[in-house]
Computed example of a mutant assay.
Amino acid sequence: MRTLRIAAGVEAVSLTLLVLNVLTVHTELVTSLGGPVHGTAYLVVIAATWLAPATAVSGARPWALLPGFGGLLVLRRVAGRDARATAR
Results as ranks from 00 to 15, higher is better:
R2N: 13
T3K: 06
T3F: 03
L4D: 03
R5G: 00
R5D: 00
R5N: 04
I6H: 01
G9L: 06
S14W: 00
L15Y: 09
L15N: 02
L15P: 00
T16H: 06
T16V: 15
T16A: 15
V19H: 12
N21D: 15
V22D: 10
V22R: 15
T24I: 05
H26K: 07
H26P: 03
T27I: 11
E28I: 10
T31W: 10
L33H: 08
P36K: 05
P36C: 11
P36N: 10
P36M: 12
V37Y: 09
V37N: 06
G39T: 01
T40E: 04
A41Y: 00
A41C: 01
Y42F: 15
L43S: 03
V44K: 13
V44I: 15
I46R: 07
A47S: 14
L51C: 01
A52D: 13
P53M: 08
A54W: 11
A54F: 08
T55R: 12
V57R: 15
S58G: 07
S58P: 03
G59M: 02
A60Y: 09
P62H: 09
A64H: 07
L66Q: 02
P67V: 04
G71S: 08
V78G: 11
A79M: 05
R81W: 13
D82L: 09
A83P: 00
A85T: 12
T86P: 02
R88T: 10
R88P: 06
R88C: 04
